[in-house]
Design a protein around this nucleic acid. Sequence first.
DNA 1: AATATTAACAACCGCCGCCTT
DNA 2: TAAGGCGGCGGTTGTTAATAT
Length: 278
Amino acid sequence: MGRAPCCEKMGLKKGPWTPEEDQILISYIQSNGHGNWRALPKLAGLLKCGKSCRLRWTNYLRPDIKRGNFTREEEDSIIQLHEMLGNRWSAIAARLPGRTDNEIKNVWHTHLKKRLKNYQPPQTSKRHCKNNNDSKAPSTSQIALKSSHNFSNIQEDINGPGPGPNSPQRSSSEMSTVTADSLAVTMGITNGGGHMDSSENFIPEIDESFWTDDLSTADNSNFNMVGSGGEELQVQFPFHAMKQESVEMDVGAKLEDDMDFWYNVFIKSGDLLELPEF
DNA sequence: AATATTAACAACCGCCGCCTT
DNA sequence: TAAGGCGGCGGTTGTTAATAT
């Protein structure tokens, strides 16, 4: 069934916002907050529906919105995030401060799709990224992240409760600490041949042969993460990931020094993350 | 200079999930 | 527990500006 769109209510104006309407909305929200969006237009004296007001505010009038063209770095971040998250524009926007989902969506459709279309990733041999010498070294913008959290939580998330076949054998004294205590991390595995990172490094796709169900033969893995501010983080997990499209983990896996693989991972609640000196 | 085409962006629409009653 | 309201999200459309013919 579904509700009728609020804008079908009598007397409500559709279409572009005038500077006067913008000013009314800004003034009202600044002094009263938006509260109930549906009630707002009436209270503020606007002939717009609440939905339209909310959209106008969140996509255009909000004071923290960054106007102007996207930088190359921002575009690269969008491409990378889109590879991980798909069309989840709001999730992408959450990692690009000052940018809105609508704006990012527009940029994607008008610029970035074309850019990617023109880009042909280099061919990678099987398990090409397995070897450090083959895979790209971390760029200077990437930061190694370590945590003291026991990574068995992650294995439990993947394998279910109980001791995994590859329980951590190293003492936590070897680990640095991330101060975040409940950081949720989601691994997003690339499926499409690879991509360029913001430093023009090619991050290869992970070949089917990489994945294993046998953690006892696992290698340490290394992840390329995007932090809350869109910054890239390089992390490693001491287990060989099993293939899952999206794995929710408790933060803080134990992370190791030996670099092996490159993946794309994003921090779901990145605000909690504090980067250690490293 | 006029017209057609394309690009860019703002706004709308409808669905979905969460929250309240 | 179910129903309805609300906000948020992603897809899509409409309008305007820029560029090509």
